[in-house]
Nucleic acid binder design. Sequence first.
DNA 1: GGCAGAATAGAACGACCGTTCGTTTAATGT
DNA 2: ACATTAAACGAACGGTCGTTCTATTCTGCC
Lengths: 217, 217
Amino acid sequence: MSPQVLKARKGEETRAQILEAAVQQASEAGFESLTIGTLAERTGLSKSGLFAHFGSRTDLQIAALDESSRRFTEAVFLPALKVPRGLKRLRALFGNWIVWPERAKLRGSCPMQAASAEYDDQPGPMRVAVAERQRHLARELAKAVQLAVDSGELRAGTDAGQFVFEMFGLVLACYHTQRLLGDAGARARALAGFERLVDANRATAGKPASRPAAARR
Amino acid sequence: MSPQVLKARKGEETRAQILEAAVQQASEAGFESLTIGTLAERTGLSKSGLFAHFGSRTDLQIAALDESSRRFTEAVFLPALKVPRGLKRLRALFGNWIVWPERAKLRGSCPMQAASAEYDDQPGPMRVAVAERQRHLARELAKAVQLAVDSGELRAGTDAGQFVFEMFGLVLACYHTQRLLGDAGARARALAGFERLVDANRATAGKPASRPAAARR
DNA sequence: GGCAGAATAGAACGACCGTTCGTTTAATGT
DNA sequence: ACATTAAACGAACGGTCGTTCTATTCTGCC
């Protein structure tokens, strides 16, 4: 029967399998390691057969980046939206962030951070795509911080941009320490750092911010 | 019998020029972008002529990593050793760290961090070399933190490992934000984060730690 | 000035890269 | 069951990669 797979022609299914392999590969060795040949071998396709699904290698890389980004949102943001806004949600976001590659069964690190490091100095479509998504991520995180300010859990003067900057730092240090040095304590360090970050910006008393956050950028 | 060759024979001079170009290239596009062909073109040598200076591409990459590491120490640590130990030196280290690529006239980011990101999941001699140097860096930084504890500027219970972890995070976030998003405010953010980190671990009063730092690990 | 040895050049190699093209197989709609 | 079209294949292309080998040029020492 065809339960819900209405238009899923064979091709799209194959394409999904290719992207699965591509994301895994990008997680392990970066997006520059995505070559037509090795990916074809991994998926059991011929080079030309695989190639036909994307018009070029660059398009394949972009598609893999999109898929990675989609999974990131799915694993980090969607679950956090079910948590009450404010500090709880912020904590959920941070927690999901540092564990999502493992949860998503990626054998390497976060593909988005891998892409950032790879293309931060390399002009081209990949750099543009990566920068755009990172900016979007920073914006969404800043919103979540602001919600914690509005709820009165963080003090009114909190600089959301600075807060997000430091969250990024903790996540990067976590991945860095974990993968390169094999330090299992990295996650605990990151969480400890986050709590210290929260404490530094916590509202002194239980008073909600009275003013509706004037300078919101 | 050529006695101790004190004078740099022509070859070593050429080798130095090659490494200069290699470090620059690694800063801009990573160590995997170091190819014999492009590097030969950059230096005006033939492929085989350049190749002869290193026995293999991997040896060239290792040599470039060593040179990068040497310059890092020269630009970050050596100047900081002239600063009185304790918080001042720690601040100098952090300050030098986030600006050294620019000071060293590298057009890209810090080669050591680039290497970390590239090889954190790639087994082989490069990964080993990178991990070793990063561990060394972390150890030296922890020593500097401990000196600030011993001098009584940081409180006795300070977890040097955690402190270094968070320093790493701030530097990584700084590079990340600066290069990918082109945010000029990244450096100020990093410095602000560092001051907050110091404050959180500052000794409550002006009392030096009386005990000589028992659990120094 | 001449000579040994270091330094560099040049051509060629096999392997892999992304891409193209014509053909063949498999899935789909009727 | 059959015609149509999507999907995958296989061979070939020009290019670059790291590496090897041989030949040439240059340098430093007597």
